[in-house]
Amino acid sequence: MRAKERSASLRVTITRLIHDGTYPDWIEAEFTDTDGKNWILREKVPSLGIEDEDVEYLPAPFEMPCRVLEERLSQTGELLKRITLEEEPYVISESSRHALTCWVRASDLSDGWAEDQK
């Protein structure tokens, strides 16, 4: 079922803060899609608005901006949503940088995107 594109926030886990002597620092964040694939994302700390206290203790939950492109029901009746990431972070589990598009459970998204439906 095609959905009107809406802003959303994907719940991820920040697993690593990378201090490599350059500015800015980077984070690695992970999430798992509906196919069970574990995605590892790498992005610059400032581009996500992350504060020092957000990464003081790792792993740490975080919400990455994304867009909902489509939705459908799984065979068990669970609502799934196809998303793309807004910032196109570097996907280190893939061979090249590209816009990430995948299916996630609706429960993996924050409720903040519901405002766009009004």
Rank of each mutant, 00 (worst) to 15 (best):
M1T: 02
R2F: 10
A3D: 11
A3V: 13
E5C: 05
R6N: 07
S7D: 04
A8P: 05
S9C: 01
S9F: 09
L10W: 01
R11A: 11
V12Y: 01
V12A: 05
V12C: 05
T13D: 06
T13M: 07
I14K: 00
I14A: 01
R16L: 08
L17M: 10
I18K: 12
H19Y: 15
H19D: 15
H19K: 13
G21Q: 04
G21F: 13
Y23I: 05
Y23F: 12
P24M: 12
D25C: 15
D25E: 14
I27Y: 11
I27L: 09
E28R: 10
A29C: 01
A29P: 00
E30V: 13
E30T: 15
E30Y: 05
E30D: 08
E30I: 10
T32L: 02
D33Y: 04
T34Y: 07
T34Q: 11
D35I: 01
G36Y: 08
K37P: 00
K37F: 10
K37H: 07
N38M: 15
W39A: 08
W39L: 08
I40E: 06
I40H: 12
E43V: 06
V45F: 05
V45P: 06
P46D: 11
P46W: 07
P46A: 08
P46G: 11
S47L: 10
L48T: 00
G49F: 10
E51A: 14
D52S: 11
D52P: 15
E56G: 11
Y57T: 11
L58G: 01
L58F: 06
L58A: 13
P59M: 08
A60M: 03
A60D: 03
P61I: 00
F62D: 02
E63R: 04
P65Q: 07
C66T: 03
L69R: 09
E70P: 04
E71T: 06
R72K: 15
R72S: 10
L73E: 14
Q75Y: 07
Q75P: 01
G77Y: 12
L79A: 04
L79W: 05
K81C: 11
K81V: 04
R82K: 15
I83V: 10
T84L: 05
E86Q: 10
E87L: 07
E87T: 13
P89A: 02
P89M: 06
Y90P: 00
S93V: 15
E94T: 02
S95D: 10
R97E: 10
H98F: 09
A99I: 13
A99F: 10
L100K: 03
T101I: 09
T101R: 11
C102Y: 14
V104Q: 00
V104C: 08
V104D: 04
R105Q: 10
A106L: 02
A106F: 05
A106H: 13
S107A: 14
L109E: 07
L109Q: 03
L109K: 01
D111S: 11
G112D: 14
G112K: 14
G112I: 02
D116M: 09
K118L: 13
